[in-house]
Design a binder for these strands. Sequence first.
DNA 1: TATGAATGAGTATTCATTCAT
DNA 2: GATGAATGAATACTCATTCAT
Lengths: 199, 199, 199, 199
Amino acid sequence: MKIELKKQKKKAALMQAAYTLFLKQGTENTSVGDITTAAGVAKGTFYLYFRDKQDIVTAVIVVLSRQILEEAYLKMCAVRTGDFAEDMTLLANALLDFLADNKPLLGFIERGFRWPAFRERMNAAGNPVWQSLRNDLRLQAERTGKDEEELIRRVYCLVSMCGSVAYSSIMRGEPEDLSRLRPVICGIIRDSLRAEAAE
Amino acid sequence: MKIELKKQKKKAALMQAAYTLFLKQGTENTSVGDITTAAGVAKGTFYLYFRDKQDIVTAVIVVLSRQILEEAYLKMCAVRTGDFAEDMTLLANALLDFLADNKPLLGFIERGFRWPAFRERMNAAGNPVWQSLRNDLRLQAERTGKDEEELIRRVYCLVSMCGSVAYSSIMRGEPEDLSRLRPVICGIIRDSLRAEAAE
Amino acid sequence: MKIELKKQKKKAALMQAAYTLFLKQGTENTSVGDITTAAGVAKGTFYLYFRDKQDIVTAVIVVLSRQILEEAYLKMCAVRTGDFAEDMTLLANALLDFLADNKPLLGFIERGFRWPAFRERMNAAGNPVWQSLRNDLRLQAERTGKDEEELIRRVYCLVSMCGSVAYSSIMRGEPEDLSRLRPVICGIIRDSLRAEAAE
Amino acid sequence: MKIELKKQKKKAALMQAAYTLFLKQGTENTSVGDITTAAGVAKGTFYLYFRDKQDIVTAVIVVLSRQILEEAYLKMCAVRTGDFAEDMTLLANALLDFLADNKPLLGFIERGFRWPAFRERMNAAGNPVWQSLRNDLRLQAERTGKDEEELIRRVYCLVSMCGSVAYSSIMRGEPEDLSRLRPVICGIIRDSLRAEAAE
DNA sequence: TATGAATGAGTATTCATTCAT
DNA sequence: GATGAATGAATACTCATTCAT
């Protein structure tokens, strides 16, 4: 018990240290040694909890991706209209805001965004945010008589689009400033979700 | 004259060598030495034509991105229907086919796709393929009374979505097999372009 | 004639460029390319005027060493007492002042100081400053009935001591701050020149 | 215990290997790889004991400088006269002899001599040679009623002069052969120490 | 004289990973 | 479980110098 707890704590400490360092210096410039030093454990200990460096990178990205989507979802909830397409538009905007405000973070997760939504939704024990999102999707599916799975996939693709366009625009300024692409993204989301509902 | 020509050839040789090696072994596993050896020039010569390794990586990606899109466009042309939204759907399918068939290539450009369309279209002297694509967009814009620029942006975002979803699905199998996501992508494209036209 | 002049100009330009760059960035961090660029000539041209990089480094050091000693000598002249030992002390102080004020310069010539005095004095056509210094030495030699050559050697050794101690102290802070070593140096100079005169 | 011992041994092995190689090939022509190979350790191990290459260069120079001075001091002791100024003259001669006989060594330490005397003398636990030298200085200071610290500084400067003149003369033949400068150096030492004592 | 494209030798340093303790 | 000493592979980049025009 106690041991199990200790282990959990150590792993958490490593994750936390990695999280902080990755954000500050990026993945490449953070060595395993940096992480273990920051976590206050020996280098070898790292390999008791993670297979290799990539393992912890992925783990942190997953956590981060989830956090970002959660944060954006909560922000959307605060201003939601009740119209599904519109609300997804708000979600996208919240997402874009967050990414634009966290350039270093965007650089870190680079294009490694992981949308754990699809694994999570199998999880009945998932956290409330995801349950709520899933509920939104289910309601909308019922309301429009569409397949929930299909709707989920559609939303996934649209969120992917947000991430991809945002990365290119924010990190490289290609092909234009995000301010110009944002309404386009929203337009696509709105149109594609309305159209589907109407079919 | 002669010298200038020689320089052009040398740069091309470097690019070609890099292109081949990157595809075969990936960016990371290809050293500058590998490239110069393959191109038959001295190591130092590399730095007369490219600032650093990343410089040539980007250059190759740009070329590749253009080629991919061109190839997909040509494939679409062979089966185009005349309906813009439908045709874009065909373009997306051609794109996805190509990416699915060239996993190593996808791994190489990672998510680093560069859509040079937006710079190119400034270029009146662009190659025929791009001129044709641009023409399609102009026609559709006229037909629907929409702004051409906006339409271009919309198509850009949709193509970005293709790339992003394809990468995730093909390279990591996340969140599902491409076969399941492909119709979703096409649906979004169709819906979002029809809706825009109808507005 | 004209050609000869042009050549001289180019060589001078290279020296001047090297001088400036060496002082700013040090010898190591200045490439031949830097020098030729700054001088406005092609790289290959460099080798028409200097055998290799070391050649120009030495040339610049020689010029610099002479300048430093000349400057110090002139400074001393402005306050000379007429007492030889005392005046040499003033010369040392001027030298130390100069070196302390030009740390980058000191770093550049490192320990490469060249005292061209001994070649110069063969030169009847040497510049006035050196003639004056030599005159001082001759007078002092006569006054004390000592051999002029010996006196020159003694002064050379004392000046060497200045350079060596200054370098260590200024560049590395070893073994103490120059302010503490300065009176010691002056003491040695004074004592050793007075003693010789008195013998 | 055991581990600590092993580490000491490894560092010593590295130093020894570096010492030998530096003397044989000079600092520049000795790579870190050469050193580790000679020491029988992995390349990476080097960086567990030295910050970088310069670190070990300095370390070896310090050791070498100490050895040289020690050796010269012992040689002087064998023929000392009891007269301080005279004895210092003998020390200088021994020093010059040593340097003249070890041209490669002189080339290696260049003018990088480190006189560790001033740190050492703080060390009550210093080795016997230094204790003896220090004792000489203390005695002389007492005998002449001068400040010991000042005397130490004076000797430091004089020894610096030896090194500087020797380097120039032996390595570059400037401005003359050492045989001509040696008596001058001794004269300065003698005069400057006698004068001080007499003041 | 002058050019500048081409050369290619040369190396310090990092860091993920292992394993003896 | 934990440690941390040891490993050694792996590589981009500079720059003095040459030589064909």
